[in-house]
Amino acid sequence: MISQAIPEASIYQPRPAKLIRTEAIAEREKLFEFEFRDGGELGHKPGQFVEISLFGIGEMPNSISSSPTKNCSFELAVRNVGNVTSALHGLTEGSTVGIRGPFGNGFPIDKLKGNDILIVAGGIGLFPLRSLINYVLDKRSDFGRLMILSGSRTPQERMFVSELEKWQERRDMELLETVDRGDEKWTGNVGVVTTLFPKVDIDPQNTFAITVGPPVMYKFVVAECKKKAIADEQILLSLERRMKCGVGKCGHCQINGVYVCQEGPVFSYAEIRKLEEAI
């Protein structure tokens, strides 16, 4: 005896998608462009993620790297670190994968509109941020200034180099880059990403700082944002957690009582300040 109706479809059933293009990003990172076999769209927001399946290997969460302004297809950028990611790296164009999603809240586009945007990317944190950056560029007049601080460990580990170069040339945005360790050819800034903060001048009232990177980075970035007097509500972070279901059931992504796959992965610092274990 239970009153809840049985749903028609399984929340665990992925939609088949075809790999239509791959492109090397860096040594361990590759970009994958997909199209749904049924011709439908993903219908995502920047900052959301999907669960991608390679049947027989497994399923994993991955942010969407393309902007929703790009129609029909969507892109995932993936670092090869384990079972599913390495199998994905071995796929050839034309192969089929399974996709569930989009999941998660994504960046609060409506709140961002009309404001200046300060993006702070660490390493492959640029993967989900690229979706937002391209969205802002495609709807340029909806937003104020676009500033990007991007940090990589070495010049070889810079992601989306050709795009970085294009962004560097654009007049309607500012991009500052740094590497932790330079080499003979690197003429840019050397130091962790927070060393770029003194080089930008912002209007804290109207600025949203949005940061994605390795967990260790967050505390330092938040401290710099606070030094610049950005309000906690306007500091946004995307958190990574182990995820299995993506739909608020399996419990893996929990931070205290919060399910990152549902309420996140994007949180304001005001929200996670009270959450123990968040950063």
């Binding site: 665990y12 399946s53 279901c245 059931k249 419990g251």
Partner: peptide, 30 residues
């Protein structure tokens, strides 16, 4: 709480995705 895994037959063709109980007290849960 549960984990999700794939199993594939020896012929590498048929397989199944299953969930099994998991628990937050186990070391690698997070």
């Amino acid at each position: 709480c549960f984990d999700v895994q794939d199993d594939i037959a020896l012929n590498l063709k048929q397989g199944e995705r299953y969930r099994q109980w998991d628990g937050c007290m186990l070391v690698d849960f997070a």
